[in-house]
Structures are given as structure tokens and as C-alpha cells.
């Protein structure tokens, strides 16, 4: 069964009297465990696609089935529940809560989901060790380096053990070395079976993925998966 099934997805924005078609007639299918890179020029609709996949945004038309369930018709709170347990998001600009420590930021999805403190502590401790942050547990985001911040963000995205991780230019704000570290972390997650979708401008990074999508003007211009199929 496909993890993700998009069909006839439209997403347009009105800017004054012009309408921008960020996504137009998009059909897409991803299986569980895939490693997909989304590439394409600026403004081609990559982030819009990822936001739709992450249920952060709604399409104007078309259907989105996640794990076989149509999620476009869910209520906002039902979508929140899906985001909470099924999807982890990694942003280019980290989006950590500045007043919370690294450990608290990592625990935030569990806190919001109402998981018991003891269980939270256990999982955060594991995550801190796994992502090499054991010495940084009590640090605020502004006391961390860019790479450390993104590692905290990835730890946060995985702490609810979702089957799908979406990363929008996760290395965009990092130098090559730390960017590579972050990519390795994400690839390790994929190796353990998590479906990984990464938006990137970096061709070498994109080439590491097993499947490349190239977008242009809101349409799929190339899908390496087609050739394999």
C-alpha cells in the first residue's frame, strides 16, 4: 500500500488580481520507506508541496491519501492528531522555541500530546544521546551552533516516532560539513524504515536520494521513480 497518494492536487494563491498556481494538477505516489529528494528552481512549488504533505496547508482541489486515509477532509483537530503521531517536520530555519532548553524543545511534541513525564524523560535522554546532544540538554537554542540546533530539530521531529519525515532545505542554513552530518542523521532514520522527503537545492545532496523529483512551475517536470517503475 502506498504511504502517500496525491491526485489532481491544486494549490493557488491570490496576490491582488493575479492568481499564482503554486501547484497544478499534481499526481504523486510514495511508498513507505522511500528516500525522496524534491528539487527545482526557486518558486517552483517545492515548499508548497511539502507543506501539503505535512498537513500544514490545504489544497484547493485534489485528494491526499496518507496511509490509505483521505486526510484533506479531516477537521483541523483531526489533522493536528495526524501531524502529532504520523509526521515529523524539519525546517530550514529550525523553528525552535527560544525560551525552552534543547531537552524541552525535543520533548515538546510529547508534552503537547500529553505523554507522561517519566516516559518523556526516558525518550529525550535516548534522543539526546543518539543525536550527540547529551552535553547540551540544558542549553537554550541561542547557546547552540546551527548544526546543533538542526540536530535538536531532527530529534524533535522523530521523538513521536512518526513513519514520515519531511525536511524543507534542512541544510540550507548550515555549512557543508555540518550539513553533511545532518543529512547522515536523516539517512540513518531512513535506513531504519522511516519515509524521508527532503527539499533541496543542492544537486549532490539530491543525488544521494534513491528517487528525485524535479519541479517546475508547480508541476512535476521529472520523476526518477518513473524510470525505475
Amino acid at each position: 500500500m502506498a504511504l502517500i497518494e496525491l491526485s489532481g492536487i491544486e494549490r493557488s494563491f491570490r496576490l491582488g488580481d493575479t492568481t499564482v498556481h503554486a501547484l497544478a494538477g499534481l499526481d504523486l505516489r510514495m511508498d513507505a520507506g522511500e528516500y525522496v529528494a524534491v528539487m527545482g528552481p526557486s518558486g517552483s512549488g517545492k515548499s508548497t508541496l511539502l507543506n501539503l504533505l505535512g498537513l500544514l496547508d490545504r489544497p484547493n482541489a485534489g485528494s491526499y491519501r496518507l496511509e490509505g486515509r483521505d486526510v484533506t477532509t479531516l477537521s483541523p483537530d483531526e489533522q493536528a492528531a495526524v501531524r502529532s503521531t504520523r509526521i515529523g517536520f524539519v525546517f530550514q530555519s529550525f523553528h525552535l522555541v527560544p525560551r525552552l532548553t534543547a531537552a524541552e524543545n525535543i520533548a515538546l511534541p510529547m508534552t503537547l500530546a500529553g505523554i507522561a513525564p517519566a516516559e518523556r524523560r526516558r525518550r529525550v535522554e535516548r534522543a539526546l544521546a543518539d543525536f550527540g546532544l547529551a552535553q547540551r540538554a540544558g542549553h537554550k537554542p541561542d547557546e547552540l551552533s546551527g548544526g546543533q540546533r538542526q540536530r535538536v530539530a531532527i530529534a524533535r521531529a522523530t521523538i513521536m516516532q512518526p513513519p514520515l519525515i519531511l525536511a524543507d532545505e534542512p541544510t540550507g542554513n548550515l555549512d557543508r560539513h555540518t550539513g553533511d552530518e545532518v543529512v547522515h542523521l536523516l539517512e540513518e532514520l531512513n535506513a531504519r524504515g522511516v519515509t524521508l522527503v527532503v527539499v533541496t537545492h543542492d544537486p549532490t545532496l539530491g543525488a544521494r536520494a534513491r528517487r528525485q523529483l524535479v519541479m517546475e512551475d508547480g508541476r512535476l517536470q521529472h520523476d526518477s521513480g518513473d524510470a525505475a517503475r
Binding site: 493536528a80 501531524r83 517536520f89 523553528h95 522555541v97 515538546l108 503537547l112 500530546a113
Partner: peptide, 16 residues
């Protein structure tokens, strides 16, 4: 608002 957006992205319900 950005923080509220983040909380929602992390799965917080409107009620929370």
C-alpha cells in the same frame, strides 16, 4: 503567531 504555528505543526490541537 509563529510559535502558535509551530505548536500546531508539532501536533497541538486548537484546544491545547
Amino acid at each position: 503567531t509563529a510559535e502558535i504555528g509551530l505548536l500546531k505543526a508539532l501536533g497541538a490541537s486548537g484546544r491545547t
